[in-house]
Amino acid sequence: MDPRFKIAHREAKIGVGIAIAHFLWWFGFAYGLGSRPVEQYRYIWGFPDWFFYSAIVGFILISITIVFVTKFVLKEVSFEEDGEADR
């Protein structure tokens, strides 16, 4: 198999992994904290805590993860067909 495909397969798995972790974070905070009665909500920067952690912190964490992954984990490959010559 084209060695570039090994890299592509690995990175697709990373994508699925990040999406699952993202979903768990998003769901956990939104419905874990959000299902309490409204009177028990705390407010961070004015936002209800469930929303602050799930949507705002979640978004920031995902952005950091993506920056980190693209910088240190993903590999450069050639898309051209001559990139195949070295297989």
Partner: peptide, 25 residues
């Protein structure tokens, strides 16, 4: 509904990580 809208963040990375390199090649 804002919570629902935030599910769209995933498209930003998911599409390119899944289709990504193999599709381009």
């Amino acid at each position: 509904w804002v919570l629902l809208a935030m599910t769209q963040v995933v498209t930003g990375y998911f599409v390119l990580l899944i289709l990504g390199k193999k599709f381009a090649i």
